[in-house]
């Protein structure tokens, strides 16, 4: 069929008009928004340091949508590829959901419960600390430090967690305390 541009538009318009008559009125409406009846909370992107605000929509304890927060003067609703993928951080079957334990010389992980894990870690901490604690250095100066434990981390923690973590480490007497800012 030989159709001029003008003719094509006529045919296309006619087809659309015919299609339109066939719909029931309720279907002519847009589908309900996927965030309808969802609870909204705001968060700040966990990746780079721009500090973009994100709206997280949840329904029945599941994240149903994440999007840039237009109220933030910093990102005004925009997000980059990473910020736009926060949805997959929450909906991700590969997230760790249970403590894992690898015994010395073992070839596999074993799932363990928190109580056992925490007790075992605490025993290890005490053993390492008591064995390596130095009240004084070679010059006889008071140093009160634990030399046999080191820590790295973390710029991925919230401020409140950073403060409490450094409190824990310094309370233990650690001096080898480092994190992402050094690398």
């Amino acid at each position: 069929m030989d159709v001029s541009r003008r003719g094509f538009l006529k045919i296309a318009g006619g087809t659309l008009a015919v299609g339109g008559i066939g719909f029931r009125p309720s279907l002519a409406h847009a589908e309900p928004l996927k965030i309808q009846y969802a609870k909204e909370t705001t968060t700040i992107c966990p990746y780079c340091s721009v500090g973009c605000s994100i709206i997280v929509s949840t329904r029945n304890g599941k994240v149903v949508n994440t999007e840039g927060d237009p109220d933030s003067p910093i990102n005004r609703g925009s997000l980059c590829t990473k910020g736009g993928s926060i949805y997959q951080m929450a909906n991700n079957e590969n997230r760790l959901g249970k403590p894992l334990y690898r015994a010395p010389y073992a070839t596999e992980w074993k799932e363990v419960d928190w109580e056992w894990t925490l007790d075992r870690i605490a025993e290890n901490v005490k053993k390492s600390r008591d064995k390596s604690f130095r009240a004084t250095n070679d010059k006889g100066e008071v140093v009160n430090r634990t030399e046999g434990i080191a820590s790295v981390g973390s710029a991925a923690l919230d401020n409140e967690e950073c403060f409490v973590y450094q409190k824990f480490l310094r309370g233990l007497g650690l001096v080898y305390i480092e994190h992402q800012a050094r690398i």
Binding site: P46, S49, G51, I74, L96, R120
Partner: peptide, 26 residues
């Protein structure tokens, strides 16, 4: 692994949208 003595604990933690707190940008 059969030659490595280290006892390892891999602890699962909450992601940013699963807890409350503050972070400070650049």
């Amino acid at each position: 692994p059969k030659k490595i003595k280290t006892e390892v604990f891999l602890l699962p933690c909450a992601a940013s949208i699963e807890k409350e707190g503050s972070i400070i940008n650049s």
